[in-house]
């Protein structure tokens, strides 16, 4: 499943834009606060559970505190797939998966975006912990994948360069 998300809170509506057969298997993520995945095209979030404040934060520390109430430690068990140089900064494909046990949530952060958290997913029990999304990057930034598992918070990061392009050899 590919969810399209953005750093803009107004765009962060729970919608499923595309179902791609190739990426569906083993990748089932529900929107944060929406509970278990629904079969419907549109999933309505519970307004009381929606973490509005977390999505408005502007630093990694504030965002993780607001969303998860703790800090993350680096884990080699998280796979974060992102381009080295974005082909289009407006739609940068990001994929996160992990072998960590008891995963309850996955979040994607772009540290130099105006709002730090780009997307967050609650992972229901028994679901393979794998999500893919596209995020918008304003400029070259560190992208952070955060995994909540077994009551702890883990992370992995990569730098994604956003360039004007041109002038190839």
């Amino acid at each position: 499943m590919t969810e399209t998300a953005s750093d803009n809170l107004a765009d962060f509506l729970p919608r499923r834009r595309q179902m791609l057969a190739g990426t569906l298997a083993g990748s089932l993520a529900a929107l944060f606060g929406a509970g278990p995945a629904q079969a419907d095209d549109v999933v309505l979030a519970d307004p009381k559970a929606y973490p509005t404040a977390a999505f408005a934060q502007k630093t990694e520390a504030d965002a993780l505190k607001a969303m998860f109430g703790r800090t993350a430690t680096v884990s080699p068990k998280i796979s974060l797939d992102a381009p080295d140089i974005a082909e289009n900064g407006a739609v940068v494909p990001i994929a996160v998966k992990t072998d960590l046990p008891d995963v309850t949530a996955i979040a994607i952060l772009a540290l130099d975006n105006p709002f730090t958290i780009s997307a967050a997913y609650r992972i229901p029990p028994g679901t393979a912990a794998a999500v893919s999304s596209r995020i918008k990057l304003a400029k070259t930034t560190t992208v952070l994948a955060v995994v909540e598992a077994g009551g702890q918070l883990y992370s992995a990061s990569r730098s994604v360069k956003v360039t004007l392009g041109g002038c190839g050899g």
Binding site: N88, C167, G169
Partner: peptide
Amino acid sequence: PYVPIAHPK
């Protein structure tokens, strides 16, 4: 590796 960046996408 960078065709759509070095050239028109």
